[in-house]
């Protein structure tokens, strides 16, 4: 119980703060509650299958398979797979982190994890279709063509900036989180 309270402390503080916001400015406060409730419902609709697939992946796909396809020495194949899996995603960026944790646990190479996160954040296929419809083909395609090398470049720079020990710590942490 105490542990639960501690984990949800930030949430409780935020709820209290919003309570004050409602007292202070009823209109904005209630609007905030309304928007939050809507995005909560939206999240609850999208997230269960993601985590379900994650659980299944964790149980069924052996570490060796993932290492072979996306681990150290997986080369360009690993890069392409990371881009592809990230792009196929359909939910917001925060959904990528739990998936990345399982990938790390399964021995996926660090730079491929970063490419995967980058692809998830910006080159999602469903979003691309939507972008084309609203902003035009030229805009969407130009952005996509810059984004792909950009994602790989950012992943490369990040993996150079982060030391081996830090990477190890992040992998350890992933191991604990998705136990």
């Amino acid at each position: 119980m105490k542990l639960v309270l501690k984990r949800y402390r930030a949430f409780i503080i935020t709820v209290i703060a919003i309570g004050f916001l409602i007292l202070f400015n009823r209109q904005i406060g209630l609007k905030a509650v309304n928007i939050s409730a809507n995005s909560f419902i939206e999240m609850m609709l999208v997230i269960p299958p993601v985590f379900l697939l994650l659980g299944l992946l964790d149980v069924w796909v052996p570490r060796e398979t993932m290492v072979r396809f996306m681990g150290e020495g997986s080369g360009i194949k690993g890069v392409l797979l990371s881009l592809l899996i990230g792009s196929a995603a359909a939910c917001p960026l925060y959904g990528a982190f739990p998936v990345a944790a399982v990938f790390m646990k399964k021995g996926v190479k660090f730079s491929n994890i970063l490419i995967f996160i980058g692809a998830w954040s910006t080159t999602k296929i469903p979003m691309f279709l939507f972008e084309t419809a609203s902003l035009g083909v030229k805009f969407a395609v130009t952005r996509l063509l810059i984004d792909i090398p950009g994602i790989i470049m950012i992943a490369f720079v990040l993996s150079k900036l982060i030391s081996k020990e830090e990477v190890q710590k992040i992998y350890q942490n992933a191991e604990n989180i998705s136990k």
């Binding site: 930030a10 949430f11 935020t14 509650v33 928007i35 939050s36 995005s39 925060y94």
Partner: peptide, 16 residues
């Protein structure tokens, strides 16, 4: 817990 906090903060942000 983190999700819930983020969702509330986004709600406030978009309301403002």
């Amino acid at each position: 817990p983190e999700f819930l906090v983020v969702i509330l903060l986004v709600g406030v942000l978009l309301a403002v």
